[in-house]
């Protein structure tokens, strides 16, 4: 048997040629009577994918999504009350939190009545993606053991959620098909905006906190009761959690439900 001695350079050349050969064979599969696959030509095989159902973004989907967000709010307020997150100076806001929770229950019922009237199925649970993407991480930051501002951060989370809810209703106005539905949406959207103002005044009270101002030390926007002249659809920033070694809290960015978080008609609780 003859010995095969290869230098490092020769080995690299050989491996490069092998990859190129694999790609060439994959590309030439059809001509070489290689078994046909629906996958993109590649070395090796990839299991076939399962197509998701066809989905249309219609009035029912938009309203089911709004209903799901109402349940996110209900669950968040329930958690704040049941887990005793409103402690110290913030305990006095428990009645306000109960009022907000009850308002969201009414909103959820009202939106689901519209859904059913349109021929859809009521959605009576929270939006899973909003929960896992935004709310669960936020609650984890709030409740971690060394967070000295858990109560205030709970109010900050509620404030962010109310802003997102208001934006959601405002944002669907251009997509809903009838003027009546648009008005129905905004009857609720303006309620969420009012909630946001009350919570903003808890976090940053007084007339000086009505317009948008900037924290000179951090360069970030302060909480404002009326931050813009027209309803904003921009991302909502939420700063919560225990400060790190530099004294900086964690920033989360929340946005309204979109294509990957809509509650399509095939989604159920």
């Amino acid at each position: 048997m003859s010995e095969l001695n290869l230098s490092r350079r020769q080995l690299l050349r050989l491996s490069g040629a092998s990859v190129a050969g694999s790609l060439f064979l994959a590309a030439c599969g059809k001509q070489s009577n290689v078994e046909q696959s629906s996958n993109i030509a590649s070395a090796g095989t990839v299991p076939p994918t399962t197509a998701l159902p066809e989905a249309e973004v219609n009035d029912i989907v938009l309203l089911r999504t709004a209903a799901s967000l109402e349940y996110n709010a209900i669950d968040t307020y329930e958690l704040a009350l049941e887990a005793g997150l409103l402690s110290g100076d913030y305990a006095k806001y428990a009645d306000a939190v109960k009022r907000f929770r009850d308002d969201h229950r009414e909103h959820a019922d009202a939106v689901n009545k519209l859904v059913v009237a349109l021929g859809g199925k009521a959605h009576t649970c929270a939006n899973t993606r909003i929960k896992t993407t935004y709310l669960d991480p936020a609650v984890a930051l709030i409740t971690e053991g060394d967070n000295p501002d858990a109560a205030r951060d709970t109010i900050a989370l509620a404030h962010a959620l109310e802003n997102i809810a208001a934006q959601t209703y405002q944002g669907v106005v251009g997509s809903l098909s009838s003027p009546k539905l648009r008005a129905d949406a905004m009857r609720i959207g303006q309620d969420e905006a009012r909630h946001a103002v009350v919570l903003a005044q808890v976090l940053n009270p007084g007339h000086a906190a009505v317009p948008q101002t900037v924290d000179a030390a951090t360069g970030r926007n302060n909480i404002a009761s009326v931050p813009t002249a027209f309803g904003s659809l921009a991302n909502v920033f939420l700063t919560i959690g225990a400060p790190n070694t530099d004294g900086v809290k964690t920033n989360l960015i929340l946005s309204t439900p979109s294509l990957n978080s809509f509650v399509y008609e095939f989604v159920s609780c």
Binding site: R99, M186, G189, R194, V198, G206
Partner: peptide, 28 residues
């Protein structure tokens, strides 16, 4: 456009209900 005005006018009204003292009923 009208929707973007409604939400801010609701905020204006809520500010009057929140200041100088908070009244949930007046604000909401």
């Amino acid at each position: 456009l009208v929707a973007s005005i409604i939400v801010v006018e609701a905020r204006h009204a809520a500010v009057f209900g929140s200041l100088p003292t908070m009244s949930l009923t007046s604000a909401l």
